[in-house]
Simulated assay, not measured.
Amino acid sequence: MKPNHHWSVHVPEQILDYGPLYGFWAFLPERLNKVLKNLNTNGWGGGQLEVSMMREFHRAVQLEGMVSEHAFIQLLFGESRDREALGTVQDAANHARAPSRVLAGTFAEKSARFDEPKHDAMRLGIVNYYNQHGAKVHLPLGIPGANTEALDSFVDFYDYALLDGRRLTSTNYSRRGAASSLIQVHSNGEPHAGEIRHLFRHRQQGILDSEKTVLAFIEWLVPTLDTPMENNDFPWHDFPELGVETWARGQYAAPNEAGFPPQVLPLADIQCQVARGVVGYCIPPIWITTTMDRVRLK
């Protein structure tokens, strides 16, 4: 038996200890090993090889950091490569310099207008978000209230953002479908899963530092009326720690529908990503999600 084969027999136990593999896999370190091996070492050996490799690596990371601090250069830099495959070194730089749970990725559109009818729900969601946090904002064509400001019509859209080091994408700019856009929040003690349609920053006149918050525009999944989770024969019935929930397949809540979380939330308010599949033996078939947060099964 080879070492990798021996290691694989411990995977079930590790999942029980640490939760889904997504939470503790080592893809980034393995990719960094490949990057280091491909660096130019100028033929150094005998103890100098490691120094040369680390100098070259730090030079690349510092360059990524310098580029990311300048929006215009970042825009050009991001357009020159695959939007969702920005490279191992940049990912490492992002992890190293991330000051909080949230870090914005590359621009999809900068200073983009969002005053078309297709953005009506998003505009209303932003207005509600500001007003719920003490600001006074109204829609540009709406009836202004006392001492309110009209909503600014420009936003910066992002291809992706990092939340706790994990990449979240928006379905409007992703080439991979919704897999990396599925998230979960808790509202009034209940879990709600949704798909991120847009990741953006918005600058609003009269609100200090409003442009520093990464926001998400989310469409919420609709829970099933009769959940099979209550059925003892359902495979996940005995594992509540996995946070398995069921949803009506292909259905989303109406814009700003009562009983669901706000459609516009700070990215930091998101609990975690979720994985989604289809339960085909139900009639009609349903969606099923499980949290990708770390859990410990008893």
Rank of each mutant, 00 (worst) to 15 (best):
M1N: 11
M1T: 15
M1G: 13
P3G: 12
H5M: 13
S8I: 13
V9C: 11
V11W: 07
P12F: 05
Q14T: 10
L16W: 03
L21Y: 00
F24V: 14
F27V: 11
K34H: 15
V35H: 14
V35Q: 14
L36C: 12
K37N: 13
N38C: 08
T41G: 04
G43F: 02
G43E: 03
G47K: 10
V51T: 12
M54D: 07
E56I: 06
E56K: 09
R59M: 08
G65A: 09
A71T: 14
A71H: 12
Q74R: 09
R83S: 13
R83Q: 09
L86N: 07
L86T: 06
V89P: 06
Q90E: 10
Q90M: 08
D91R: 15
N94G: 15
N94T: 14
N94Y: 15
H95L: 14
R101W: 07
A104C: 11
A112I: 11
K118E: 12
H119L: 05
G125Y: 01
I126M: 04
I126L: 06
V127D: 02
V127G: 08
N128T: 02
Y129F: 11
G134M: 11
V137L: 09
L139K: 02
L141T: 14
I143A: 14
P144V: 00
N147H: 12
L151E: 04
D152C: 07
S153W: 00
V155A: 12
Y160E: 00
L162H: 10
L168M: 07
L168N: 00
S170F: 02
T171F: 11
N172I: 01
S174E: 03
R176P: 02
A179F: 01
S180D: 03
L182W: 02
L182T: 00
I183N: 04
Q184A: 09
N188R: 03
G189F: 02
E190D: 09
E190K: 03
A193Q: 03
E195V: 15
R203D: 00
L208S: 13
D209N: 15
D209L: 14
V214I: 15
L215E: 09
L215K: 08
W220N: 03
L221H: 05
V222C: 06
T224V: 13
D226V: 12
M229N: 02
M229G: 01
E230F: 08
N231Q: 07
F234D: 12
E241A: 06
G243D: 06
V244R: 01
W247G: 03
W247S: 02
W247N: 01
A248D: 00
R249D: 12
Y252E: 01
A253G: 07
P255N: 07
N256G: 08
N256T: 05
E257H: 00
V264Q: 02
V264F: 01
P266D: 01
A268D: 13
C272I: 12
C272Y: 11
Q273H: 10
V274T: 07
V274R: 04
V274Y: 01
P284L: 06
P285F: 06
M292P: 04
D293R: 04
R294G: 15
R296Q: 14
R296I: 09
K298S: 15
K298L: 15
